[in-house]
Amino acid sequence: MANTLQFDLVSPERRLASVAATEVQIPGADGDMTAMEGHAATITTLRPGVLRVTSAEGVKSYAVTGGFAEINATSVSVLAEKAVPSEEATGTVLDDILAEARELAAAALPEDRDMAEKAVNDILAMKAGLGH
């Protein structure tokens, strides 16, 4: 597949993904970002939210609580504090991630409040999309 980059997602519990991706949408602490082949070298911390990966198999979503992503021209490596694939996300797991996102939103500085509230809304949307 042309125009791909290697995507790896790991959490303390396990490796969740290792695929050739065309794009990776990352909930960065300083704003959402999309990494594609040829991206400038970047390291960003993650905020609670939904990470989406587009590959030959389609789009796969993961709820993440934090961690960091290292991006370069040929790969994206995400080390997440906690990450759950959408198909494994139960109501309880998403409730825990949602509670953490809400705590961060409540404590956010005024200039960060919009982004913090977006994290809450992203997780609510994932929860609604899964029928939870």
Rank of each mutant, 00 (worst) to 15 (best):
S11F: 09
P12N: 10
P12A: 05
E13I: 15
R14D: 10
R14M: 10
L16A: 06
A17C: 11
A17S: 05
A17R: 10
A17K: 14
S18G: 15
S18E: 15
V19I: 13
A20R: 15
A20C: 11
A21D: 13
A21N: 06
A21P: 06
T22C: 12
E23P: 10
E23I: 08
V24W: 00
Q25A: 11
P27Y: 04
G28V: 10
A29M: 05
G31Q: 10
D32Q: 08
D32S: 05
M33T: 07
M33G: 08
M33W: 01
M33H: 02
M33A: 05
T34A: 12
M36Y: 08
M36E: 15
G38W: 04
A41T: 03
I43T: 12
I43G: 10
T44H: 07
L46Y: 03
R47P: 15
P48D: 01
G49Q: 02
G49R: 02
G49H: 02
L51Q: 07
L51D: 03
R52C: 12
R52P: 14
V53P: 00
T54P: 03
S55A: 13
S55N: 05
A56I: 14
A56C: 08
E57G: 14
E57Q: 14
G58W: 11
K60I: 14
K60N: 02
Y62K: 09
Y62V: 15
V64P: 03
T65S: 00
T65A: 00
G66N: 11
G66K: 03
G66F: 09
G67K: 10
G67V: 04
G67I: 02
F68E: 06
F68R: 06
A69V: 06
A69Y: 03
A69W: 01
E70V: 14
E70G: 13
E70Y: 14
I71S: 07
I71D: 04
I71L: 07
N72D: 01
A73S: 04
A73T: 02
A73I: 00
T74W: 11
T74G: 15
S75M: 08
S75C: 09
V76L: 01
S77M: 13
S77H: 04
V78T: 09
V78G: 14
V78E: 11
L79P: 09
L79F: 15
L79Q: 14
A80M: 06
E81L: 14
K82E: 15
K82N: 15
P85F: 01
P85S: 04
S86P: 13
S86G: 13
E87R: 02
E87M: 01
E87G: 00
E88D: 10
E88N: 05
E88L: 06
E88K: 05
A89V: 04
T90C: 14
G91A: 13
G91P: 08
T92Q: 07
V93T: 09
V93H: 06
V93P: 01
L94F: 05
D95C: 11
D95T: 11
D96P: 01
D96G: 06
L98E: 00
L98G: 04
L98W: 02
A99L: 04
E100Q: 13
A101G: 02
R102Y: 05
A105L: 07
A105G: 01
A105N: 02
